[in-house]
Amino acid sequence: MIKSMTGYGEGIHQDQRFSVRVEIKSVNSKNRDLKIRIPSALSSFEREISERVKASIHRGTVSVHVSFFDLGAGSSGLTINMARAARIAEFGKWAAETFASQPLTSKDILFYQGVITEQEDGDRSISEPLTEALSAALISFEDNRVREGEILQADLKSHLGVFRSDMSAIVAGMDNFTAQLRETHQERIRSMIEDVKVDESRLATEIGLYAERIDISEEIIRLGAHIDTLDEMVSSGGSIGKKMDFYLQELNREVNTSLAKLRHINAIDTLLNMKETVEKMREQACNVE
């Protein structure tokens, strides 16, 4: 299964206390680059979010945006230790009577350490809604990338088929191409030295060397091996984007070498078509994870 590097996913959780939304976006990139935007109140969860996203994504620039609203923040975020507040108030009253000082106000009492505390389960209470929203976003994100990957896979398979067809045409006509080029080269040499006595063995040697220079048998073998490897990779799927790019560069190099060597008009047209097909595959490979 091939996955696209481009994708989008969203997950939302809402209950009586929290409303949480997680949004994940990704675009093409040679490596993995993860950016997380998260409210400071949830910063303790950033590492967990990062690890879960990285487990799903191996390549691409990924942006994660988390937003939340605490619907119960006004009533349940803090607690007052009433027993401690009462003891402090009693002590303040005694101190005022004993030392003729100003009595403690309610504001003074509230600022004493331990009177007002945050609920200890604050992180735990938001953890489950955040986890559910993140899970939903990742599922949506993966589904989106898989759907696009299926389209990429079909398109790459089509291009590989076109390339094979053109390569078969080159192989089928190669003997004819090289024979015509040898004959043309021989006639050109004879026309240049028509008034000079020709050493036929020397001429045969020259034609033989020319035949070696225009022979692309080795290039065809390597092209066949590379196209088989690419076909297997596209069929098997996985994180193949970087490997595909390497083999497509090799295909392009072998086609360019063949173009430089086999200068027959019919072969040139077919080889140019092959080069164009490689470029189309390279464009698509840029989208593959």
Rank of each mutant, 00 (worst) to 15 (best):
M174P: 00
R222W: 01
A154C: 02
E187I: 03
I139T: 15
N81L: 10
S127G: 06
I221F: 05
E206D: 09
M167F: 11
S217P: 00
T98H: 09
M167T: 15
D108T: 06
L138F: 08
E142K: 14
E128Y: 13
D155Y: 07
S135F: 02
D175F: 03
I139M: 09
V198D: 01
Q102P: 00
T105V: 07
M174N: 15
I193L: 15
A86N: 10
I126G: 07
S101F: 03
L134E: 08
L223P: 02
P103E: 11
G92P: 10
D143R: 07
R147I: 12
E200L: 05
A86F: 06
G224R: 01
I220F: 02
S168C: 02
D166G: 11
Q186I: 05
E219Y: 04
A211D: 09
E150D: 14
I207R: 00
E148T: 04
E183H: 09
E148S: 08
D166I: 00
Q102D: 09
N176Y: 00
M167S: 08
A211L: 03
L152T: 03
A179S: 12
T98D: 07
Q180S: 14
Y112A: 14
M167Y: 01
I109V: 13
T178C: 13
D199K: 04
I220K: 01
R190N: 11
E218A: 02
Q102V: 14
S165W: 14
I88G: 02
V198N: 01
V115L: 08
R222T: 02
I216D: 10
A89G: 06
D108M: 08
G92I: 10
T184E: 15
I139F: 11
R190A: 02
R145A: 06
E90V: 08
Y112E: 12
E187W: 00
T131Y: 04
T184P: 05
N176T: 14
E120A: 15
Q119R: 14
R213S: 03
L181V: 00
A137T: 13
V115E: 07
L203S: 03
E150V: 10
A172C: 01
F141L: 08
F177P: 02
V162M: 08
L130S: 10
D199L: 04
D195A: 11
R182W: 02
A154V: 11
K93D: 15
I220V: 14
I207L: 04
S168D: 15
S125V: 11
M167D: 03
I221P: 00
A83L: 09
E97K: 10
A85L: 10
R213L: 00
R188H: 10
S125R: 09
R164L: 11
E212I: 00
G114H: 13
N81E: 05
E200R: 06
A136R: 12
V115R: 05
T98V: 11
Q113E: 13
T184A: 15
E206H: 06
R202S: 07
E118F: 13
S158R: 09
R147H: 11
A86H: 08
V146T: 13
S201T: 07
I220G: 01
E183G: 15
I126S: 05
E142F: 04
E148K: 03
